[in-house]
Design a protein around this nucleic acid. Structure first.
Length: 540
DNA sequence: CCCTCGTTGTTCCA
DNA sequence: TGGAACAACGAGGG
C-alpha cells in the first residue's frame, strides 16, 4: 500500500504543537495538506433578507480576511518545508470523500472539533473513510482539555460554574515540541486545479478600497510574534487582572488580542499555557484564575466544555440551561443597535469598532450585549449573537454563545440587577470621550461634558460642534433609566415563570410558555419604539 | 434543606 | 477610596 497521508486543516491553522500534522507526516511517503473553503463559512450574511444586510455583509469581511491571512501564512510556511497548502472549494464532505479516493489516501488526520456543525460534517467523512479502509486520526488539540473527559469526570454532566470546572480540569497536557526542517512532499494531484490562496476581491466581494479594515492580521507567524511581545512584559503578564482592563483603550488594547489566533488555532492554547507558566515561574508573585491570563484560557475551556455537553446550547428554546425569557421582537431597535445608531455614543462607538475592526475589548462587548438584552432593549440574545458571530474576527461558537447566555442572564450569571450604564460605565474609563471621538467622528467636537449624553447639549453647543442631535447624530432610542427599570421587572417576571416551569425545557413546553407570555404581553402597549421627534420618557 | 459564593453594576455617602 | 444599599439570583457543597 502506498503511504499517502492527508492533514485536513480546519481550525488548528499552525505547524507548532499540531498532533494531527505530526501523525500525518510520520512514515508517510506523501503528505497532502488540505484546506477546504466551505461556503457555509464564507457566506457573508446568513440572513440576506434582513434590513441593512448589504452593509453588514461588507463588514463581515474582516473575519474572512483573517482566515485568508491564516491560509496564506500556513501555505508560506509549508513551502519552506518542501510542501504546500492544497486549497479546494465546496462542500467539505463531498470534496473530502472525492479526493481521499482520487489521491489514494491511506491515512487521514484532522484535529477534533467540538462544534455541532463540525461534528456532523466530520462524522460523514469519518464514516466514508472507515468503509474505504482509511486510517483516521483525530486528536484533541484545540483545547487544553478534552471536554468529553471533563464531562465524564463530572458524572456525565458539564460543570456549570467556573470554579467547579477548574477543580475538575486538573493540569493540561504539555505541547508537542517537534520542529520540522522538511515535510514529506505532496503526491500526485493530477486532474485537480489547486489555486493559491485567493484575495477577498477574488472571492467575489467587489471593490473594497473604501473599507476600513481590522488592524489585526491573521496567521501563525503573526500569532507567535504577538505572543512574544506579550510575554516580554513579564510584569504585565504576572499582574494581569481581566476586570481591571480599560475597554476604551484602542491604540494600545488592554488585553493580549490573542483570541482570534486561538480561535483559528494559529496559536496553540497548550503552548500559550506553558509560556504563561514559565513567566509565572520567573516572576514569582502573579494573579490567579479567574482573573489572570491563565484564568482567561480556562474560561475558554469552561465554555467549550459546557457547549459540548449541552444540546441546543446556541438557542433558548430546548436548551436546558437557558432561562426562558419572552424577549421583545423589535426590528427597529435591533437595527439601531446593530448599526450603531442607538443615540448612546458609548454603545454606538463600540458597535462601530466592531464593524470596522472586528474586535473590541471584553468589557465593551459586555456593555453592548447588556444594552441589547436585559439592560435596555430587551431583545433576544440570539440576535446579538448572530451579529457578533459574523463580525468578530475571534468569534468562536462555544465562547460567543456562552458569553451571550451569560450577559443576558440566561445562564451562568443571574444577577440581572447589575446593569451596565450606557453613560457612566464608559465615562469612568475615558472621561474625555476620546474613544467615542475616534469611532464616531460626527461627535468629535462635542464638548466632553456632553459627549456621553449629547441630547443634553444646548442647541447652541450642538451647532458649534457641527452635530445636531436628531439630524447628524440620532436621538437616544430609549431612556436608560426607565428602560432598565422596565427590563428588571421583565426579568423578575420571566424568572418566576421559568422557575414554575422547571424541568420542562422541552421544545413544546417552552413554546407553550412563550405563547402564554406573548398573550400576556399583547394586552400591554409596547412603547419602547424609537420616537421620531420627541425624546420622551418611554414606558411599558 | 441551608449556606456560601460568584471574573468585570451603580449610586451615594463618609 | 472604600463601604453600604439597592434587590436578590442559583449551582454546588455540606
Amino acid at each position: 500500500m502506498e503511504s499517502n497521508a492527508m492533514i485536513w486543516f480546519r481550525k488548528g491553522l499552525r505547524i507548532h504543537d499540531n498532533p494531527a500534522l505530526d501523525h500525518a507526516r510520520r512514515g508517510s511517503k506523501h503528505l497532502f495538506p488540505v484546506f477546504v473553503l466551505d461556503p457555509h463559512y464564507l457566506d457573508p450574511d446568513p440572513s440576506p433578507s434582513s434590513p441593512g444586510s448589504a452593509r453588514s455583509a461588507r463588514s463581515a469581511l474582516n473575519r474572512i480576511r483573517f482566515l485568508l491571512d491564516c491560509l496564506s501564512d500556513l501555505d508560506a510556511t509549508l513551502r519552506t518545508l518542501g510542501s504546500r497548502l492544497l486549497l479546494l472549494r465546496g462542500d467539505p464532505v463531498r470534496v473530502l470523500c472525492t479526493i481521499l479516493k482520487d489521491w489514494n489516501i491511506g491515512k487521514l488526520c484532522y484535529e477534533f472539533d467540538t462544534e455541532p456543525y463540525s461534528l456532523a460534517r466530520d462524522k460523514q467523512v469519518k464514516d466514508f473513510a472507515s468503509i474505504s479502509g482509511i486510517e483516521v486520526f483525530s486528536p484533541v488539540s484545540h483545547t487544553l482539555f478534552n471536554p468529553a473527559v471533563v464531562i465524564e469526570k463530572n458524572g456525565g454532566r458539564p460543570p456549570l460554574t467556573y470554579q467547579s470546572f477548574v477543580k475538575l480540569a486538573g493540569k493540561p497536557p504539555t505541547p508537542l515540541t517537534e520542529t520540522y526542517s522538511e515535510l514529506p512532499p505532496v503526491g500526485n494531484v493530477a486532474g485537480y486545479e489547486l489555486p493559491s490562496v485567493p484575495t477577498i476581491e477574488e472571492l467575489g466581494y467587489g471593490d473594497l478600497s473604501q473599507e476600513e479594515f481590522s488592524p489585526f492580521r491573521g496567521g501563525e507567524m503573526e500569532a507567535l510574534k504577538r505572543l512574544k511581545k506579550v510575554l516580554e512584559d513579564k510584569e504585565w503578564v504576572a499582574t494581569f487582572e481581566k476586570p481591571k482592563g480599560d475597554p476604551s483603550a484602542f491604540l494600545k488594547p488592554a488585553t493580549t488580542v490573542l483570541s482570534p489566533y486561538l480561535k483559528f488555532g494559529c496559536l496553540s492554547s497548550r503552548y500559550f499555557y506553558q509560556c504563561l507558566h514559565n513567566v509565572y515561574k520567573t516572576v514569582g508573585k502573579h494573579t490567579s484564575p479567574p482573573v489572570s491570563l491563565v484564568g482567561q484560557l480556562l474560561w475558554r475551556e469552561f465554555f467549550y466544555t459546557v457547549a459540548f455537553g449541552t444540546p441546543h446550547f446556541d438557542q433558548m428554546i430546548g436548551n436546558k440551561i437557558c432561562k426562558q425569557i419572552p424577549w421583545r421582537d423589535d426590528e427597529g431597535l435591533f437595527v439601531a443597535w446593530r448599526e450603531g445608531r442607538t443615540g448612546y455614543p458609548w454603545i454606538d462607538a463600540i458597535m462601530i469598532q466592531l464593524k470596522k475592526w472586528g474586535w473590541m475589548h471584553h468589557l465593551a462587548r459586555h456593555s453592548v450585549a447588556c444594552f441589547l438584552t436585559r439592560g435596555d432593549l430587551f431583545i433576544h440574545w440570539e440576535k446579538g449573537r448572530d451579529v457578533f458571530e459574523r463580525l468578530l474576527i475571534d468569534s468562536d461558537w462555544a465562547i460567543n454563545n456562552g458569553n451571550w447566555l451569560w450577559l443576558s442572564c440566561s445562564s451562568f450569571f443571574y444577577q440581572y440587577n447589575r446593569i451596565y450604564s450606557p453613560i457612566s460605565f464608559g465615562k469612568k474609563y475615558d472621561p474625555d470621550g476620546n474613544y467615542i471621538r475616534h469611532f464616531l467622528p460626527v461627535l468629535k467636537d462635542m464638548p466632553k461634558e456632553y459627549i456621553y449624553e449629547p441630547w443634553t447639549a444646548p442647541r447652541s453647543v450642538q451647532k458649534k460642534a457641527n452635530c445636531i442631535i436628531g439630524k447628524d447624530y440620532p436621538k437616544r432610542v430609549v431612556v436608560h433609566d426607565t428602560a432598565s427599570k422596565e427590563c428588571r421587572k421583565e426579568m423578575a417576571e420571566a424568572y418566576a415563570l421559568d422557575r414554575s416551569g422547571d424541568n420542562l425545557a422541552s421544545k413544546e413546553i417552552s413554546n407553550g410558555l412563550r405563547r402564554k407570555l406573548d398573550d400576556q404581553k399583547a394586552s400591554r402597549p409596547s412603547c419602547l419604539k424609537q420616537k421620531e421627534n420627541t425624546d420622551q420618557i418611554t414606558q411599558h
